[in-house]
Design a protein around this nucleic acid. Structure first.
Length: 275
DNA sequence: TTAAGAATAT
DNA sequence: GATATTCTTA
């Protein structure tokens, strides 16, 4: 990777605000040199800023080392030193980045697996430019999760329809349009995944920040909205905090009733898994 | 209409 | 168990 001077970085930040999708930093992981090169060229053509690596370990090391150096990761399913899904999992666990999976075939099971592991998207090789042009949307989704439109109409699941009051649409005429997917596979198009916010992991750091906020506000006056503001962590939602606050208060109650000294320990120990 | 907090669901 | 989502209430 090229080291960049302050000027360049500044330029990129400007770009990030003005013409947002340009200059997006993308890490591409694929063991096939040809694919890698092609992909790199295509990404460049889309005005992105690709970095290529050929194995998972290097990818991880780069991601971990400089924090927040990338906006998006694209990885092949088959990479030598690690299962692509494993890599996906790790990235999702350790960092807050959208990941796009890549594969040569569109086997439903594989795609499914990608989705289940939290891939933002799944593309089938060969990837075309027009598919890449739009991948910035995943970054945008990540940064602004509020804009997520719940398109959960992908199964024949009996959608539990509440009587009159449940209608969220503002339009009076409620058209329940189900986009028919008559073309289940056009070859080499990207199969769009359900975009789902990653489950929040309350690391010790995050929890400490939470505590800090609570201390500042005062436990009794602490409400999710205020805590959210004070914490100022962009990927957290009010609901996330509400949930955690609920758990925290429950925990406090326990501690108060039976104050066995190790209750505190127990609370903290549940955060020692990672970070 | 929004948000808190309890109750459930995953 | 942890976190998300739904439900009820204010």
């Amino acid at each position: 990777m090229a080291t960049m001077g302050g000027d360049q970085r500044q330029m990129m930040e400007d770009a990030a605000e003005d013409k947002f999708p340009e200059g997006l930093r993308i890490l591409v992981v694929d063991d096939d040199r040809v694919c890698l090169t092609v992909l790199e060229a295509l990404l460049r053509r889309c005005k992105y800023q690709p970095t290529t690596v050929m194995d998972a370990k290097t990818a991880l090391r780069m991601l971990m080392a400089g924090k927040q150096q990338f906006d998006l990761v694209i990885t092949d399913v088959c990479i030598p030193d690690m299962d692509g899904f494993k890599l996906l999992e790790l990235i999702r666990l350790e960092m807050n980045l959208p990941v796009i999976m890549l594969s040569v075939d569109c086997d439903k099971k594989v795609v499914m697996k990608g989705i289940e592991h939290g891939a933002s998207d799944f593309m089938v090789k060969p990837v075309r430019t027009h598919e890449l042009k739009n991948i910035w949307q995943h970054v945008q989704r990540w940064r602004n999760p509020k804009a997520i439109s719940h398109i959960s109409d992908h199964d024949s699941d009996v959608q539990r329809v509440q009587p009159a009051t449940a209608d969220k649409s503002k339009l009076s005429g409620n058209k329940r349009n189900v986009v028919d997917d008559s073309n289940k596979h056009n070859e080499s198009t990207c199969v769009s995944a359900t975009h789902r916010k990653p489950r929040v992991t309350w690391t010790i750091q995050l929890h400490n920040k939470f505590l800090e906020a609570i201390n500042q506000i005062g436990l009794d006056r602490a409400v999710p909205k205020k805590v959210l503001e004070l914490m100022n962590v962009d990927y957290l939602s009010r609901e996330n905090i509400a949930s955690h606050l609920q758990k925290y208060r429950l925990h406090l109650k326990k501690v108060n009733s039976n104050h066995s000294g190790d209750a505190y320990e127990r609370w903290n120990s549940s955060y020692n898994m990672n970070n």
